[in-house]
């Protein structure tokens, strides 16, 4: 069987800012996959992306892109990476034509036909200053730039935040088209888990600078479950199975990390599939509202 290549590899990456620390972050993104990088605002998603792009230097650990360590020649590696940030970064006086002139003299593989095709598809005027574009149009412009130099890896930091659902769906469709090519990979950072649920194959969940969960999205969704029970029933549940507990409409909701085991152990209890949003919320609140507190309340 052919070995699956990793396009992005982070191993024990640490970056300490004093008031915030990215702590021993390790994960991989397999080639040809869409990896959702989720976490609440300030969890360390953008810092991790900046480390990957060699915009900032890690204090410790190793980062490899396309199998190569980024320290040596990160500028060359960026030739194969398309990046979309939540803020545009192009000068407001620039038009689509200006951006094309600039980019075709920077990227070796810049394809102006592809670029203008995207502008046409996104209904973006080529002669209008991008300062006059709406947020959705600016995002589309960035995506057009990111896709016009035949990038193999697309890294996007909150590309769909602040966009209306129609534009968001349009974006998701474009991302789907991008990953049709076998060697195309997407790392999509977002806190809008609904988009990732539609698109992602892999999920990396970061919270307070630490990786909480990483792996195949379907496996994660299959493993986790939302158990609904009365507060008094909570102590019956085996503690290692519980991720976190939250008050529900008629009792409590418990996120469990092994749904099948729970179904066997507690057949009388209702266990529903958990969404990525549920998983994110329960993990984020794990430290503040843990099971210990809830059981104490029950007592």
């Amino acid at each position: 069987m052919e070995e699956i290549k990793s396009v992005v590899e982070l191993k024990d990456v640490t970056k300490d800012y004093g008031d915030f620390k990215l702590n021993q972050v390790s994960f991989t993104v397999p080639e040809g996959s869409v990896c959702g990088f989720i976490g609440q605002n300030g969890a360390g998603k953008t810092t991790t992306i900046k480390l990957m792009l060699d915009v900032i230097k890690a204090d410790e650990g190793e980062i490899r892109l396309f199998g190569e360590s980024i320290g040596k020649d990160s500028a060359r590696l960026r030739e194969d990476i398309g990046v979309v940030f939540d803020e545009m970064g192009f000068h407001e006086f620039m038009t689509g034509r200006d951006i094309n002139i600039m980019m075709k003299n920077i990227y070796k593989n810049w394809d102006e036909d592809v670029f203008f095709d995207y502008l046409k598809r996104f209904s973006l005027p080529t002669r209008k200053k991008c300062g006059d574009f709406s947020r959705g149009m600016r995002m589309k412009l960035q995506i057009a730039v990111a896709l016009s130099h035949h990038a193999k890896l697309l890294i996007m930091d909150e590309p769909t935040s602040g966009l209306d659902p129609i534009v968001r769906n349009e974006m998701i469709q474009i991302f789907r088209e991008f990953v049709i090519e076998e060697d195309h990979t997407i790392l999509l950072s977002s806190h809008i888990t609904g988009d990732l649920e539609k698109l992602a194959d892999e999920v990396v969940f970061i919270n307070a600078g630490k990786i909480v969960l990483a792996g195949n999205k379907d496996d994660i969704l299959e493993k986790h479950g939302l158990l609904k029970c009365k507060k008094s029933e909570l102590e019956k549940i085996s503690e290692p199975l519980i991720v976190n507990v939250a008050p529900g409409t008629f009792g409590v909701e418990v996120l469990v990390n092994d749904r099948k085991a729970c179904e066997k152990l507690y057949p009388q209890m209702v266990i529903e599939p958990a969404s990525l949003e549920d998983i994110m919320l329960f993990y984020v609140n794990k430290d503040s509202k843990n099971v210990g507190n809830m059981t104490a309340e029950t007592d």
Partner: peptide, 10 residues
């Protein structure tokens, strides 16, 4: 905020 663009260029 051109830094966002220049930092990702090759």
């Amino acid at each position: 905020g051109f830094f966002n663009v220049s930092s990702i260029l090759p």
